[in-house]
Design a protein around this nucleic acid. Structure first.
Length: 107
DNA sequence: TATTTGACCAAGA
DNA sequence: ATCTTGGCCAAAT
């Protein structure tokens, strides 16, 4: 099996593993995760998370869009539950945007 | 096998 | 500050 294929093999799994590493009170973006994996599949990241709405083990509410907007949660865009969870962890959201300069976690 | 679908991104007619 | 457009790529159809 060549290297590229191997990289692709556990794509979704890698996404979940990285997502689990995001600490409480911080966020990451779909793009950052893609970069950490070494791919440009920003959209596929979103798809992978969507497919596994497992909020307990995988804090996908800590993954947002690179422009600071929230993205989706549990299958829906602009899910209020996501906003609520983030605020609960101490992240301030103004006009449905997050200040990434402040809260972005770098891998 | 081929086409479509997204919880995306960056640039801007 | 919004909205549109073209590009991206794994997964689902």
């Amino acid at each position: 099996m060549n290297i590229e294929k191997k990289m692709r093999y556990n794509f979704s799994k890698r996404v979940w593993e990285l997502t689990k590493k995001i600490p409480k009170g911080k966020v990451s973006t779909y793009k950052e995760i893609a970069k950490a994996i070494g791919t440009k599949a920003y959209r596929a990241i979103g798809n992978a998370l969507k497919k596994n709405p497992y909020p307990i083990r995988i804090p996908c509410h800590r993954v947002v869009c690179s422009d600071g907007s929230l993205g989706g949660y549990k299958g829906k865009t602009n899910n209020k539950e996501k906003k609520r969870l983030l605020e609960k962890e101490g992240i301030k959201i103004e006009k449905n945007k997050i200040n990434l300069k402040k809260y972005l976690y770098r891998f």
